Computed example of a mutant assay.
Amino acid sequence: MSDFFDDEPQDEEDIKSRTQIKREAEALQSLGKKLIGQKPEMLAKLSLSDELRAALKEAGRLRQNEAKRRHLQYIGKLMRAEDAEQIREHIERQEAGTRAYTQHFHQLENWRDLLLNDDKQIEPFVSAYPDADRQHLRQLVRNARKEAERNKPPAAARKLFKYIRDLDDNQ
Protein backbone atom coordinates (compact mmCIF):
# COMPACT_ATOMS: atom_id res chain seq x y z
CA MET A 1 0.00 0.00 0.00
CA SER A 2 2.93 2.35 0.55
CA ASP A 3 3.81 1.93 -3.16
CA PHE A 4 0.52 3.52 -4.12
CA PHE A 5 1.32 6.78 -2.35
CA ASP A 6 4.95 6.83 -3.38
CA ASP A 7 5.13 9.90 -5.66
CA GLU A 8 8.92 9.90 -5.91
CA PRO A 9 10.37 8.38 -9.08
CA GLN A 10 12.37 5.19 -8.77
CA ASP A 11 15.46 6.50 -10.59
CA GLU A 12 16.71 9.99 -9.75
CA GLU A 13 19.04 9.98 -12.77
CA ASP A 14 16.04 9.92 -15.13
CA ILE A 15 14.78 13.21 -13.76
CA LYS A 16 15.78 16.27 -15.75
CA SER A 17 15.22 19.79 -14.57
CA ARG A 18 13.45 22.27 -16.81
CA THR A 19 16.73 24.13 -17.16
CA GLN A 20 18.52 20.99 -18.33
CA ILE A 21 15.78 20.23 -20.87
CA LYS A 22 15.96 23.81 -22.13
CA ARG A 23 19.78 23.65 -22.44
CA GLU A 24 19.54 20.44 -24.44
CA ALA A 25 16.90 21.96 -26.75
CA GLU A 26 19.07 25.06 -27.27
CA ALA A 27 22.10 22.87 -28.00
CA LEU A 28 20.12 21.01 -30.66
CA GLN A 29 18.95 24.33 -32.15
CA SER A 30 22.54 25.54 -32.21
CA LEU A 31 23.61 22.35 -33.96
CA GLY A 32 20.74 22.79 -36.39
CA LYS A 33 21.90 26.35 -37.07
CA LYS A 34 25.35 25.01 -37.97
CA LEU A 35 23.73 22.49 -40.29
CA ILE A 36 21.84 25.26 -42.08
CA GLY A 37 25.14 26.90 -43.00
CA GLN A 38 26.67 23.71 -44.39
CA LYS A 39 27.13 22.93 -48.06
CA PRO A 40 24.82 20.34 -49.65
CA GLU A 41 27.79 18.01 -50.32
CA MET A 42 28.56 17.90 -46.60
CA LEU A 43 24.91 17.32 -45.69
CA ALA A 44 24.77 14.42 -48.17
CA LYS A 45 27.46 12.62 -46.14
CA LEU A 46 25.28 12.68 -43.01
CA SER A 47 22.48 10.24 -42.31
CA LEU A 48 19.62 12.67 -41.75
CA SER A 49 15.89 12.09 -42.01
CA ASP A 50 14.14 13.35 -45.13
CA GLU A 51 12.02 15.65 -42.98
CA LEU A 52 15.13 17.30 -41.48
CA ARG A 53 16.75 17.63 -44.91
CA ALA A 54 13.63 19.38 -46.19
CA ALA A 55 13.57 21.69 -43.14
CA LEU A 56 17.23 22.61 -43.64
CA LYS A 57 16.58 23.38 -47.29
CA GLU A 58 13.53 25.46 -46.36
CA ALA A 59 15.57 27.46 -43.81
CA GLY A 60 17.63 29.02 -46.58
CA ARG A 61 14.49 30.45 -48.15
CA LEU A 62 13.23 32.28 -45.04
CA ARG A 63 14.00 35.99 -44.75
CA GLN A 64 12.05 37.32 -41.76
CA ASN A 65 13.75 37.04 -38.38
CA GLU A 66 10.72 35.71 -36.52
CA ALA A 67 10.10 33.07 -39.18
CA LYS A 68 13.76 32.05 -39.00
CA ARG A 69 13.56 31.79 -35.20
CA ARG A 70 10.43 29.60 -35.31
CA HIS A 71 11.90 27.44 -38.05
CA LEU A 72 15.08 27.00 -36.04
CA GLN A 73 12.96 25.77 -33.14
CA TYR A 74 11.31 23.31 -35.53
CA ILE A 75 14.71 22.10 -36.71
CA GLY A 76 15.72 21.67 -33.06
CA LYS A 77 12.61 19.56 -32.52
CA LEU A 78 13.47 17.40 -35.53
CA MET A 79 17.04 17.07 -34.26
CA ARG A 80 15.75 15.18 -31.19
CA ALA A 81 15.17 12.13 -33.40
CA GLU A 82 18.63 12.37 -35.03
CA ASP A 83 22.01 11.14 -33.88
CA ALA A 84 23.21 14.51 -32.60
CA GLU A 85 26.61 13.21 -31.52
CA GLN A 86 27.40 11.87 -35.00
CA ILE A 87 26.38 15.21 -36.54
CA ARG A 88 28.41 17.17 -33.99
CA GLU A 89 31.51 15.04 -34.62
CA HIS A 90 31.18 15.46 -38.38
CA ILE A 91 30.89 19.25 -38.10
CA GLU A 92 33.82 19.43 -35.65
CA ARG A 93 36.02 17.39 -38.02
CA GLN A 94 35.15 19.70 -40.86
CA GLU A 95 35.79 22.83 -38.77
CA ALA A 96 39.10 21.40 -37.54
CA GLY A 97 40.15 20.78 -41.14
CA THR A 98 39.20 24.33 -42.04
CA ARG A 99 41.17 25.71 -39.10
CA ALA A 100 44.22 23.63 -40.06
CA TYR A 101 43.99 24.84 -43.66
CA THR A 102 43.69 28.46 -42.50
CA GLN A 103 46.68 28.07 -40.19
CA HIS A 104 48.74 26.55 -43.00
CA PHE A 105 47.68 29.37 -45.32
CA HIS A 106 48.85 31.91 -42.72
CA GLN A 107 52.22 30.17 -42.51
CA LEU A 108 52.64 30.58 -46.27
CA GLU A 109 51.67 34.25 -45.99
CA ASN A 110 54.23 34.61 -43.21
CA TRP A 111 56.94 33.19 -45.52
CA ARG A 112 55.97 35.73 -48.18
CA ASP A 113 56.16 38.61 -45.70
CA LEU A 114 59.51 37.43 -44.34
CA LEU A 115 60.95 37.19 -47.84
CA LEU A 116 59.71 40.66 -48.74
CA ASN A 117 61.14 42.23 -45.59
CA ASP A 118 64.54 40.55 -45.37
CA ASP A 119 66.91 39.10 -47.99
CA LYS A 120 68.46 36.85 -45.33
CA GLN A 121 65.22 34.84 -45.22
CA ILE A 122 65.86 33.33 -48.65
CA GLU A 123 68.31 30.77 -47.23
CA PRO A 124 65.93 29.42 -44.55
CA PHE A 125 63.17 29.33 -47.15
CA VAL A 126 65.31 27.36 -49.61
CA SER A 127 66.31 24.93 -46.84
CA ALA A 128 62.60 24.45 -46.02
CA TYR A 129 61.69 24.13 -49.72
CA PRO A 130 64.67 22.53 -51.52
CA ASP A 131 62.89 22.58 -54.90
CA ALA A 132 62.82 26.39 -54.85
CA ASP A 133 64.68 28.20 -57.62
CA ARG A 134 66.74 30.89 -55.83
CA GLN A 135 67.11 33.09 -58.88
CA HIS A 136 63.40 33.03 -59.66
CA LEU A 137 62.58 33.60 -55.99
CA ARG A 138 64.90 36.62 -55.77
CA GLN A 139 63.41 38.06 -58.94
CA LEU A 140 59.86 37.70 -57.58
CA VAL A 141 60.90 39.34 -54.30
CA ARG A 142 62.65 42.18 -56.13
CA ASN A 143 59.61 42.83 -58.36
CA ALA A 144 57.26 42.81 -55.36
CA ARG A 145 59.42 45.32 -53.51
CA LYS A 146 59.52 47.63 -56.54
CA GLU A 147 55.75 47.53 -56.79
CA ALA A 148 55.42 48.36 -53.10
CA GLU A 149 57.79 51.30 -53.44
CA ARG A 150 55.78 52.69 -56.35
CA ASN A 151 52.44 52.12 -54.58
CA LYS A 152 51.24 49.86 -57.39
CA PRO A 153 48.79 46.98 -56.95
CA PRO A 154 50.56 43.92 -55.48
CA ALA A 155 50.54 41.71 -58.60
CA ALA A 156 54.15 40.60 -58.07
CA ALA A 157 53.48 39.87 -54.40
CA ARG A 158 50.59 37.65 -55.51
CA LYS A 159 52.91 35.89 -57.96
CA LEU A 160 55.39 35.36 -55.14
CA PHE A 161 52.68 33.90 -52.93
CA LYS A 162 51.47 31.65 -55.75
CA TYR A 163 55.04 30.42 -56.26
CA ILE A 164 55.36 29.69 -52.52
CA ARG A 165 52.02 27.89 -52.50
CA ASP A 166 52.96 25.82 -55.58
CA LEU A 167 56.23 24.81 -53.94
CA ASP A 168 54.35 23.81 -50.81
CA ASP A 169 51.81 21.80 -52.79
CA ASN A 170 54.54 19.93 -54.66
CA GLN A 171 56.47 19.13 -51.50
Rank of each mutant, 00 (worst) to 15 (best):
M1S: 13
S2H: 09
D3P: 14
F4S: 08
F5I: 15
F5E: 15
D7W: 04
E8T: 15
Q10C: 02
D11A: 09
E12G: 06
I15T: 13
K16E: 12
K16M: 04
S17L: 06
R18K: 13
T19W: 00
T19K: 07
K22T: 05
K22V: 01
A25S: 14
E26Y: 07
E26F: 11
E26L: 07
L28K: 04
L31I: 00
G32K: 02
K34D: 07
I36T: 08
P40R: 00
A44W: 08
K45Q: 13
L46Q: 08
S47Y: 00
D50R: 06
D50A: 07
L52I: 10
L52C: 09
R53F: 05
A54M: 03
L56W: 03
L56C: 02
K57I: 06
R61P: 02
R61W: 09
L62I: 09
Q64W: 08
E66Q: 04
A67F: 06
R69H: 08
R70F: 12
R70A: 07
H71Q: 08
L72M: 14
L72Q: 12
L72A: 15
Q73C: 04
I75T: 01
I75R: 02
I75Q: 01
G76L: 04
A81F: 12
D83N: 13
D83W: 04
D83T: 00
E85P: 05
I87N: 06
I87Q: 08
I87F: 09
I87Y: 08
R88I: 02
E89Q: 08
H90I: 11
H90N: 10
E92C: 07
E92R: 10
R93L: 12
R93D: 07
Q94P: 03
E95F: 00
A96Y: 05
G97E: 09
R99I: 10
R99N: 13
A100E: 15
A100Y: 08
T102I: 02
Q103W: 00
H104F: 11
F105K: 13
H106S: 06
H106P: 03
N110R: 08
R112E: 03
D113I: 01
D113M: 03
L114Y: 12
L115A: 09
L115G: 04
L115V: 08
L116Y: 04
N117H: 14
K120R: 07
I122V: 14
I122S: 06
P124S: 06
S127W: 06
Y129F: 13
Y129H: 11
P130K: 01
D131H: 07
A132D: 11
A132S: 13
A132Q: 03
D133M: 00
D133I: 00
H136R: 08
L137A: 05
L137V: 13
R138W: 06
R138M: 11
R138V: 03
Q139I: 11
Q139V: 12
L140I: 08
V141R: 02
R142V: 02
N143I: 04
R145H: 04
K146E: 11
E147K: 05
E147W: 05
E147N: 05
R150G: 02
N151H: 13
P153G: 10
P154R: 05
A155M: 12
K159P: 08
F161I: 03
K162S: 10
Y163P: 01
Y163R: 02
Y163N: 05
R165D: 12
D166H: 07
D166I: 04
L167Y: 02
D169A: 14
N170T: 10
Q171I: 05
